[in-house]
Design a protein around this nucleic acid. Sequence first.
DNA 1: CATCTAGATAAAAATTTATTTACCCGTTAT
DNA 2: ATAACGGGTAAATAAATTTTTATCTAGATG
Lengths: 104, 104
Amino acid sequence: METNLAERFAGLLKVLANPIRLKILALCVSKERTSRELREELKISKPLLIAHLRKLVDAGLLEYRAELDEERMIVRKYYKTKPFEIYINPETLREILENLKLNK
Amino acid sequence: METNLAERFAGLLKVLANPIRLKILALCVSKERTSRELREELKISKPLLIAHLRKLVDAGLLEYRAELDEERMIVRKYYKTKPFEIYINPETLREILENLKLNK
DNA sequence: CATCTAGATAAAAATTTATTTACCCGTTAT
DNA sequence: ATAACGGGTAAATAAATTTTTATCTAGATG
């Protein structure tokens, strides 16, 4: 357990430490976006986009709602960036270490 | 130029997205640390520590001063975390995208 | 000589992450 | 039949990052 906080924090930062994923989050802030829109904007393949979206959703930074397009009988997903705040400064990092010490 | 901001931001996050480097920064907040101290605390090899320290210094998150230990004729480095603030929320990310658009 | 201290490099090895390629399912339209 | 839409998977490939291993410099000590 003692390394969990630092590793989980690093894991979250790792999700964000990718330009494409940053762009996805930025694109989905003010309006919902579909897969197609994101692909066209970002110019990446479908599987690649799905992989990126997966990581963001799993990290809790992005959410989606599925909607049935009755005209074409397809289910379309609309992605939206969730509210979040990450604030890092030397002190917050030190608190991470303090946490480690308390758990030992 | 247009992808520079997102990539540079991602690059900075990437430096932080590593548990060992997070711990180094945390350890060096309230007092300067030597290589030896860090190695003992983190239990990693010397070359590995040097590689991590290099990345942090190059990213501008860590600084050091070199001091001559006259008893043993060695130069010892004391590392200290520099003040920094990183704040991320959906709006700041959107601003990144806005920047891209302005540059197009 | 060997060993220890400090700092460091380079290359090989190991590990992780990212991306592409090939396909799948279902539905509808041509 | 093929193509298009949507969602997706798996495996191969490519790329990037991290870590280890081997070694170097210099000085001091046993």
